[in-house]
């Protein structure tokens, strides 16, 4: 079965349409979405409507979570005070813009979606806010995949698409408890796992304006990173017309994200 996995649409309806057309042309059997349907971009309701109408299995992203539960991320979500201020403006705008049914739908999204030996998360299985960057420590990456029980884990959030093979290995765990001795030791073998980041539809971070997503063939295990051009100027125009900060439009047109990414790949937001 050929599946398409997309993530981080961020209210960019033009980009979503282009990616869906490309998925159609690639004849994918099923589509999965890794969340962040809203935030920064000008069309949060339309994006959610499209995902709902196509009945695409979707997990909850950090922006989706913040719209449901309120913005209370710790400072790890933003790498600079400027990005944080811009993020707050985008959150407030989105919060005002979205319809009640959009918010209700976002609230129903699960943190993890599983299908057979595949697992789909936004940031990591532990948090929508955790960044699994391409160079994350192999042990950390493997622990995250193993915790889901899947062989292949798809994630998003970093906006950087990549495929990471996690080689077979042996784990030894020693548990020390204050009132128990001796220490307990356990060993287990970890088979080959894969971590695949789907990049971003709405605000990719590869320095170009094209949207990205991945195709995965569950029989051959082949992965294809797709890059799809779209009319980003329409999105830029809508950003300005709808009253979002014009700097978002400028950054998107330069192939940059609306704000910025956090740098610490292993930090988990402790709200």
């Amino acid at each position: 079965m050929k599946i398409a996995v997309m993530s981080c649409i961020h209210g960019n309806y033009e980009a979503l349409n282009a990616v869906l057309s490309d998925i159609d042309a690639q004849k994918a059997d099923k589509i999965f979405c890794l969340g962040d349907l809203v935030g920064y971009g000008p069309y949060p309701n339309q994006v959610v409507e499209m995902i709902r109408s196509l009945d695409i299995p979707t997990c909850q992203g950090c922006w989706d979570e913040d719209i449901v539960e309120g913005l209370n991320s710790c400072e790890c979500s933003y790498p600079s005070v400027l990005a944080e201020k811009r993020g707050r403006v985008a959150h407030e705008w989105t919060n005002q813009e979205i319809h009640p049914e959009t918010r209700s739908f976002l609230a129903t999204l699960p943190m993890v979606v599983q299908e057979d030996n595949l697992c789909f998360v936004h940031g990591s299985p532990h948090s929508q806010h955790e960044y699994l960057l391409p160079d994350i420590h192999a042990f950390t990456a493997l622990e995250r995949v193993l915790s889901t029980g899947a062989d292949v884990m798809f994630c998003g959030h970093t906006h950087v698409p990549y495929v990471r093979a996690l080689s077979e290995g042996t784990f030894q765990v020693r548990i020390s408890q204050p009132n128990a001795d001796p220490d307990q030791t356990g060993r287990f073998e970890a088979p080959l796992k894969r971590l695949i980041n789907a990049g971003s539809v709405g605000e990719p971070r590869h320095g170009r304006t094209d949207a990205t997503y991945v195709l995965y063939d569950s029989e051959t295990q082949d992965v294809a990173l797709r890059e799809v051009p779209y009319d980003y100027q329409k999105t830029c125009q809508a950003i300005i017309e709808k009253g979002l900060p014009p700097i978002f439009a400028w950054r998107l047109a330069q192939g940059m994200e609306y704000a910025e990414r956090a740098e610490d790949p292993t930090h988990v937001c402790e709200r």
Partner: peptide, 17 residues
């Protein structure tokens, strides 16, 4: 100034934002 913010601002300023 926050260094990371200044870095972003300077890039935007000098690249025509």
């Amino acid at each position: 100034l926050d260094p990371a913010s200044l870095d972003t601002f300077w890039h935007e300023l000098t690249q025509g934002a």
